[in-house]
Design a protein around this nucleic acid. Structure first.
Lengths: 134, 134
DNA sequence: TTCCTTTTACGAAAGTGTTCGTATAATTGA
DNA sequence: TCAATTATACGAACACTTTCGTAAAAGGAA
């Protein structure tokens, strides 16, 4: 029996590979490997193996038409980020989104444009809080 | 030679134990173990071993005065959170604090009080951005 | 065809983290 | 004092992830 639903908690390396796939779309093993090598030296068969494992876990899908298989992310970046964030919030911040946001904003430089984005989001959240939940 | 500086990247279980220590101050193995068991069944010697390893890594300090040693976090919650957040930002959000904040705020309920806190922080950040860096 | 390159498949080693059994020492109390 | 309890120490098993060597298949070029 094969695993049906992909784990929403990819390992560290799996996540790195997912990032490459999210950024570049369907890719060959060689392409992924070369992208990885720009960050950290990695053997070709290492990348291959990882992709095969990820395929088994349904983290990626595979097009076997041509000799060089094409791998593609089977989970969306958003879903994964959402899930990882939830976990991270729990384990590192005991669930306090507030603390996390304050840390994230406080300890790094934020451009005026980014500040505006947040202000807009806040305004929307405030408006929503005056309405009944849909 | 023993490790001098504690790793700011505690493992998942180590982090759980640190949370217990942060919340309760210096604690015996038994106390930590019982706290852990409220969440997930864990053998006593398992907790002991973990604390011993954490002690070796200088993640916790140990008071051996009485028979039941007292363990205490040797890293602060803030420092650890800061470091974990940086890592998390890199691996999960490709460094975009903005995306993370939006996700964190967007997908969960925020109380009016919390919204105010953020607004205050934003105001401070805006003011700062008009001044030269100190 | 034959040789060389590129690819997939697979198993096993290596690394890391977690769990637990067992030995031994300290303490308590009947 | 002696047995029962509770503590620490330690090594080994286990699980999970990553890395890599090797073999076999597929193509391409001489």
């Amino acid at each position: 029996m094969t695993n049906q639903t992909p784990p929403l908690k990819p390992t560290e390396t799996e996540l790195e590979i997912l990032q490459i796939l999210w950024q570049n779309g369907p890719s060959t093993v060689r392409f992924v490997n070369e992208a990885q090598n720009k960050v950290k030296e990695t053997g070709y068969t290492t990348t291959l193996k990882l992709l095969q494992i990820m395929h088994e876990k349904n983290l990626v899908s595979r097009d076997e038409e041509s000799r060089s298989h094409l791998y593609q992310a089977a989970v969306t970046e958003e879903d994964t980020q959402k899930h990882l964030l939830d976990r991270f919030l729990d384990t590192a911040f005991r669930g306090s989104a507030m603390k996390l946001v304050m840390q994230a904003l406080g300890n790094r430089s934020t451009t005026p444009d980014e500040l505006n984005q947040i202000k807009n989001l806040l305004k929307r959240l405030e408006d929503d809080s005056h309405k009944p939940t849909p």
